[in-house]
Design a binder for these strands. Sequence first.
DNA 1: TTGAAAGCGGTACCAG
DNA 2: CTGGTACCGCTTTCAA
Lengths: 311, 311
Amino acid sequence: MPTIKDVAREAGVSVGTVSRYLNGAVLKEQNQRRIDAAVARLGYRRNALARSMKTGRSMLVGVIVPALSNMFSMRVIEGVEHALEGRGFSVLVADSGGDAVREREKVALLRERMADGLVLMPSGGAARAILRAAGKMPVALIDREMDERCFDSVLVKNEAGAYRMVRAAIADGARRLGMIAGPETVQTARERRAGFLRALAECRLAPVTIVPGDYTVEGGKAGMSALLDAGVDAVFAANHELTVGALSLRDPRAANVRVLGFDGMELGDLCGERLTSLNQPMEEMGRAAAGLLLARIERPDAPIQSLRLPL
Amino acid sequence: MPTIKDVAREAGVSVGTVSRYLNGAVLKEQNQRRIDAAVARLGYRRNALARSMKTGRSMLVGVIVPALSNMFSMRVIEGVEHALEGRGFSVLVADSGGDAVREREKVALLRERMADGLVLMPSGGAARAILRAAGKMPVALIDREMDERCFDSVLVKNEAGAYRMVRAAIADGARRLGMIAGPETVQTARERRAGFLRALAECRLAPVTIVPGDYTVEGGKAGMSALLDAGVDAVFAANHELTVGALSLRDPRAANVRVLGFDGMELGDLCGERLTSLNQPMEEMGRAAAGLLLARIERPDAPIQSLRLPL
DNA sequence: TTGAAAGCGGTACCAG
DNA sequence: CTGGTACCGCTTTCAA
């Protein structure tokens, strides 16, 4: 691996000159040529590590999610990557497994690597711990806020979205509605639930049941099964996995039950009229988080922002 | 951010001593205590950049895929991450967009970052170009081999898998079979096609049609539509996206056509008996690729390996 | 415009 | 076992 020194020697100029040129400075025509030639001849590429070390910027951004192979995570990661790659940043991914301890470890690891920022989909709710592990490294939260307003964040209007979808279903004839909800500990899950309840309340309906669903396909199946037993005519599933689960339960009674899904995605095509779904703009959320991060890297002391994307 | 020097001063020992201790050496009890105390007091974390610079190992592994928001990519990335995180490596992801030029750029970028290795799902077939961009950085290919046997690789037994699934369908009564195939340029697509053809040939059947499908959901729909026109009774879709497309086409004639899908995943539950699917062990493939990479990092000159995982 | 040199934060070698 | 120090490859003053 040739270094900048080799290039300098080969071109007959000093390292400083090469460095400046490589960073955009203009120099005497002749020297430029020589350096270009030397770079080409040697196949020189600059060492990003050494560079980062001097500049203090690693051009690395981390993304920590509870699980990598999950529609939502993957789209968010894609959004972050697309928003950042043009700016010279690379994306480091890590999987917290939904565990707060591992999550903190990963955050600390990113700090050791001098990541310039971090997009986090937090597992737990320990803002202070994350803050400590992150140090001065900017953090943007996705799909979650934290009690203390100490991080930028991007979410969608969960309550309003859920409300609207449920209202539409009621307008469409649904009367016995049930919900497969996400974990109480998850803010967005609570918001979706709130939207569901408000829609019902405004129509003077009571929910048939709300079953907890832990955001897994299995949970969706189990929930659907329970709701069918309860005799619902419509089911609101609070996220993608629950929606998949609800739709994949094989039960003859399911045929007449409409499913309202959060992030049903392309499932609509597969299942036809049974499903109405509300899709979060996941990639957009990733892009937005990246944007918040960049902004904060520029101005660390700007006021905290919490974005609510429309649904 | 405190440095190792601060720790040394605080603990009243030399930097060398601190460094050694942090890397596992044993020293005088008293000094260990002092260092531990200093580290805790200062909240010291070592700088991975500086460390990498000296050791020449970045503990970074890149994964380049044609598209991040794709089940297969994500599972593979997950596998790589899980296999590597325990060993202290972090995973850098990049999206080539299926474009050979961008791909080479990303490879070069990873080299600039001194990545210790690279898992690549190549877009094109230009082994030489990749080799050049990668320099001495080890590369493990996923789901593809290259003409010159210059990279380790992990694939599944595509031909055999396709063959088996198609034979089973024929045994089950299928007689007019069609296929929505992947791009001719993609090795695995050719293998799956070969398996399909062999199964038919052995049963003295001719394929009704093979339509090209470019591995997208849209392609799957279009292909399915064409095959229905041709009057098939079974369709083999060569990857996940094509399978989704085939299944989601709304056409009454589709009801009696069985779909054989590569990587149908959880679609089976959603679509019931229409679908038979063969799922690649994606995460396992990622793990295997990571393993190959680690092995090669250890012994750069070991013979090239091409793994074929069973289906 | 250019060259020389001082680090960035570690590691590893060499004496002691 | 420990301290001192050269150096990894680059950027960035500071003079010339």
